[in-house]
Design a protein around this nucleic acid. Structure first.
Lengths: 282, 282
DNA sequence: AGAAAAAATGAAATTTTATTTCATAAAATA
DNA sequence: TATTTTATGAAATAAAATTTCATTTTTTCT
């Protein structure tokens, strides 16, 4: 736990002198991490042993250890928070906010993912006869990206961002096929139907969506990607970034599962692109 | 700067003994922050003054100060440097690594971006007669996403991930048109040519690429998205995630610049999608 | 209220830890 | 190969943190 919060919480468990220490620390923690125990004691008008006792009361080993904890708390007070863009923000401000929100979403999404589910998906994907990725709107680009990635693995893979094609493809699916349905809201009717159709036709349906949505209920395996609401500017933002990171995870799991020979092959694919590029001169 | 990265970077500036210290630290930084200078010296098989000199070479005041920096580097939010996926990683491990690397890329990318350039791009985009987004491979999906976003703004926007269509479109561009060319490497021949063609035809060319690449040289405005190299085979392209965040930034800048009436309109677009969704019951 | 017990506090002593000094060894340069 | 530069560690010193213990303050109990 953040030691600054802890100090605040336990403020009334402390003795009078110890509280003086706490106040000095809370007032300017950044100074404290560069102070010796003597300097801090003087600052708070108490003795050095008191500072030491204060540190121990907060379950640290002593003053140096306490400073370590404090430094860590200050490193990233509250790491990445979702900050909403405001009408009067400067370019610099909204840029920072958007990047930080994206990072916050990645952190959140990471927490909502379950390693076991990922493992199962990788199992299923490595054994698939055919893999299809479906998405609409912002999630369409995630499906598109997935196709790009899996195409390199030399497995039959398609992606559709068209309702009719998705339906047809789902109806034609069969046992051994894997259908990956991507939707942040998990409430897009046609996608939920597509998932259900694919399942009826014995395909394994993987859902990349938010926990507990109608889509999640239709899937064989659900990869939960929960991010804070994309309410900001009326368009999806961070959800698709988290979904893309998940695609990376699946693709990575895939290559790892397939073993080293497979990876040599991948390298060849990569090298084959070289001639289309200008050489680097460094 | 993250002191772990710094150690890695300056590894070859260090003397033989100092390097031993560096290696011990990189191997288990979490142990080191709880070690005394004597313990660390013993661990690295060198003397205490050497540890001290090592600390000073990294621009810290001494060993305790160094530990403070190290503790901050290890605090959560600041991803660990060497987060490459390893052959024997468990699902949980590679998932964490990938998410953390993506976050690191976002942070890096934000630092490389210049608010003035973003402002200029937003200017240009809001005044464009027509906007085209071009990308290939992984960057194609970024172009795709950009089209999705800008389409909602009710401005003429196209995206192409096909070399020929890109060329034709570039040749047909004219003054007042904006062409956004997206490429992480900035060395894809056909894209560099497309940028140059568009420029010859008086379009404003915005490049979303790495600083100092051939593509960057052809552009009217360059938005630098520098991320750590995607050299590793299993390491996914975090570049595209950073590029997407930048698209969000541009789209946000666009809506802010266009004012509140414009945003009301956007809300209508969003509401129009409602009927295609299952209602939320909460 | 007042005595006894408990808790808090700081001065001084001690211990631990970090830093400096300096002599020697290793490496680079001429 | 001789000379200079740089790197290194042993020992001394300095700094910082911790412990001990006597004193003060607070609390509890009669």
């Amino acid at each position: 736990m953040n030691i600054l919060e802890k100090i605040t919480n336990e403020l009334d468990m402390l003795s009078k002198s110890e509280r003086k220490v706490a106040e000095v620390i809370l007032a300017s923690p950044n100074t404290v991490i560069h102070s010796s125990i003597a300097a801090l004691a003087k600052q708070a008008n108490i003795s050095e042993p008191t500072v030491n006792r204060f540190c121990r009361r907060l379950d640290t080993k002593g003053y140096p250890d306490f400073k370590l904890h404090l430094a860590q708390s200050l490193a990233n007070g509250t790491p990445y928070v979702n900050r909403h863009v405001d009408e009067n923000d400067s370019a610099d401000e909204y840029t920072s906010k958007i990047f930080e929100s994206s990072m916050a979403s990645l952190e959140l999404a990471r927490k909502s993912l379950d390693a076991n589910d990922i493992n199962r998906c990788v199992d299923v994907l490595t054994q698939a006869n055919k893999i299809s990725f479906f998405g609409l709107g912002a999630s369409a680009i995630v499906a598109h990206d997935a196709q790009n990635k899996f195409f390199r693995f030399n497995v039959p893979v398609v992606y559709f961002d068209d309702i009719l094609m998705q339906r047809m493809s789902a109806i034609n699916s069969r046992q051994g096929d894997v259908v990956v349905v991507i939707s942040h809201t998990g409430r897009t009717k046609s996608l939920v139907e597509v998932a259900s159709l694919a399942k009826e036709n014995d395909a394994t349906v993987i859902g990349i969506t938010t926990t507990g949505t109608p889509l999640a209920k239709e899937c064989s395996i659900v990869l939960s990607v929960d991010v804070s609401e994309d309410t900001d500017l009326y368009m999806p933002m961070s959800s698709r970034i988290a979904q893309l990171a998940l695609i990376d995870v699946l693709a990575t799991g895939f290559t790892l599962r397939r073993g080293s020979k497979f990876r040599d092959n991948l390298k060849k694919v990569k090298d084959s692109l070289r001639s289309s590029r200008f050489e680097r001169k460094d």
